[in-house]
Design a protein around this nucleic acid. Sequence first.
DNA 1: TTAGCATCTATAGCTACGATAGGTTCAAGA
DNA 2: TCTTGAACCTATCGTAGCTATAGATGCTAA
Lengths: 152, 152
Amino acid sequence: MSEAEFTIGHLARQTGVKVPTIRYYEEVGLLPIPRRSPANQRLYGNAHLMRLSFIRHCRELGFSQATIRKLLKLSDKPDQPCDSVANIARVQRDEMDARIARLTELRSELDRMITACAGGPIKDCRIVEALVGHAGGRISRSSKTGTFSSSD
Amino acid sequence: MSEAEFTIGHLARQTGVKVPTIRYYEEVGLLPIPRRSPANQRLYGNAHLMRLSFIRHCRELGFSQATIRKLLKLSDKPDQPCDSVANIARVQRDEMDARIARLTELRSELDRMITACAGGPIKDCRIVEALVGHAGGRISRSSKTGTFSSSD
DNA sequence: TTAGCATCTATAGCTACGATAGGTTCAAGA
DNA sequence: TCTTGAACCTATCGTAGCTATAGATGCTAA
């Protein structure tokens, strides 16, 4: 029995991946080239649908294209042990941990800046002050204008 | 008294921003065009140094170029109230909160996947399984090969 | 038949830079 | 003074991961 085939628009709706993105994935080799209808339209089957779902989910989880490529390659070797798959997932998880930690730090900094802001004129604003940061000691905002204009 | 002027490499070392990035910021209008030496090399002053520090710190905090542009515009109006600055910072903080929340969710999902993996062959791997996700009911991995190949 | 949507290819644009090529210029040592 | 090597210049291409546009063709339903 031959399985149902469907158009790119159908595949897009089924997976939630936009049509141009599907064509892009084909172009960069993430999705295999589908057969075409007599009128040259792409025709997809269930294998494409599964593979695209896999890719989409990976992207949501923040995997890069390169990493997805590795995972797809591994998933094509069904009899190998899945340690390598788990390792990739662990690396990804650790990277996410690092990103979350960094973001949380920066969020706190931003929050401190917002709290420090007393609501006066911009030239006295602690947020602007903080954003200039520690520019080497010799540097300070103009006490007259509060801007970065040179006072030469 | 005229302030010290320095080259692009100097500015790069002082701020931790790479030379091509500085030229790029000039090109897109984030940094004002500096004067040139007789030999056509860019010469920067303290105003540039401060402005670049500001930009760098903003980028670290995840502000987009567009947002930085807004902030720079505001910082050039020192007598206006700084509500607008604080508002931009608050929006940025809220966006970061959302990003952190989303990342934390995804991290947990990844972690659950890793924990579920029993370490058998790839065709039975729960991680691969999970990454395919809920592809519409009719779809399942080939029970023989565990891959996405069509079985037509 | 005709409207209106989906599809096709090809190309350009987006953010935020990084890399490279091929050419000057500067500063310091022999 | 010469020479060497680092730093500078412009211009262009490449990166990820798409999105948007233009202009042509195809499909479907009233």
